Amino acid sequence: MNHKALFVGLTTIDIQYFIDQIPVVNTKIKTSIPDILVGGPATNAAVAFAYLNKMATLASPAGLNAFSSFIDQDLNSVGVEHFDLAYGQEFETILATVLTSKNGDRTIISHNPKQLESTIMPQKLIDLVNPQLLLVDGFYPEFSIECARICKERGIPVVSDCGSWKPQFHELFNYIDIAICSADFMPPNCTTQQELFDYMNSKNVKSIAISNGGSEIEYFSQGKKGSVSVPDVEVKDTLGAGDFLHGAFCYYFLDHNNFETALQKAAVLASFTCRFEGTRQWLNFNHNA
């Protein structure tokens, strides 16, 4: 059965180098030819959803630039239908340089996107897609907030990828049902996990999860605290693992309508992706095998 989820946010071009260890300053190293990948939080989440569901819908700006056809081909190849929010416009691609060491750790250098003037209005997008669930990653705040507001009014669950704090989350959380946070995500004046849970509760976020690499995922949902174990795997690369967790969660939440079950199953897939270099190799294998 195919589910229908809409992912709104960032699309990037990731240039990923695989090296023995992160270099010290003022050194020059040679390595193999880098992978050039289409990435970004909402984009990677859509890829994981499509892996499980055979299709996903992504709304992000790509626009006209040297990478336009590459982005189109890549998303089409992994089953992601793309609404280009910068269609027909000159648009600066977000580039990220990724250094991945032998133990799977990565360092990412990137830049923030420019302001978006979308070629499609949020109302029109939601009407066209008619999603069962929306995920936003916090980028392009005006567009994302309006999408979240419309979905909230229609009773469509809204999931937020909370990787790093952005000021727009103060307003966005008024429309969020489920927040999946990294261990580094802390709103202003929050320094502990409990303070994060309390802040989310004050915004009426129903369910909150905090991922922390290979450690247990802590959560608070419907008044209940708990944790979900993360499978132990031989890690080759962690790039995109958190994003894949979010996309898999969206699929399993629609499939089971249960927050904890969705987290458990998503953790299995996210760990599986860490066994492969890059963000596309794992798509060729069955994670349940």
Rank of each mutant, 00 (worst) to 15 (best):
F83H: 15
T192G: 15
T261E: 11
K152H: 14
L263W: 07
E218Q: 15
V38N: 09
P187Q: 13
D74T: 11
P231S: 07
N204S: 15
C274M: 07
Q21H: 04
Q123V: 07
A45I: 05
S227F: 08
D84S: 08
Q73N: 10
V158F: 08
I210D: 01
A59V: 02
E234D: 11
P41G: 13
N53R: 03
I19W: 01
A266S: 09
C250M: 03
V47I: 14
A270E: 03
T238N: 09
A56W: 03
L64N: 14
H287I: 00
C151L: 12
H256V: 03
A96V: 12
N189A: 07
Q193D: 03
T97F: 03
K152V: 05
V129S: 11
V8Q: 13
P113K: 11
G63D: 09
S221G: 05
P122W: 05
T238V: 12
L196Q: 08
I22T: 06
F276A: 12
N103Q: 02
F272C: 04
T273N: 05
Y199S: 09
M200L: 13
F259Y: 04
N130I: 02
Y175S: 02
D255N: 11
A46C: 10
L239A: 14
K4T: 14
A46N: 06
P157C: 04
L99C: 08
F67S: 14
E153N: 12
P41I: 01
Y17P: 00
V78T: 06
G138T: 13
E142F: 03
Q168I: 10
E142G: 13
F173Q: 02
N212W: 00
C250L: 05
V235K: 13
S211A: 15
Y175L: 02
G223A: 11
P23R: 10
S32E: 10
Y251F: 15
K236D: 02
